[in-house]
């Protein structure tokens, strides 16, 4: 069974933060580098950063 990761969830009243829920959050240094480039107008970097931010990681149970 495939299970998509959410950025956060609440279990038994406690907040859980899934730091590896998207490519952007797992590979946060690479994502950070791309966003810095995007800020300077690099369109390719912007596109890749957007893709990573939308790429939800999943696990297989």
């Amino acid at each position: 069974m495939i299970k998509n990761a959410n950025p956060t969830e609440i279990k038994r009243g406690k907040l859980i933060i899934n730091l590896d829920c998207t490519e952007a959050s797992e590979d946060w240094l690479k994502f950070g580098r791309l966003t810095e480039k995007a800020k300077k107008g690099d369109k390719e970097a912007e596109k890749e950063a957007e893709r990573m931010d939308n790429s939800v990681l999943f696990s297989v149970e």
Binding site: K14, L15, I17, E26, F31, T35, M52
Partner: peptide
């Protein structure tokens, strides 16, 4: 650090947890 859409969502929920008076969170990482 975590930024982008994902990081913003995490920030909002951490701040909500603080507003509820919660002191700790569970971190799940690779």
């Amino acid at each position: 650090g975590t930024s982008g859409k994902t990081g913003r969502e995490m920030r909002v929920d951490v701040e909500k947890a603080l507003a509820r008076g919660e002191e700790a969170v569970i971190i799940k990482d690779a």
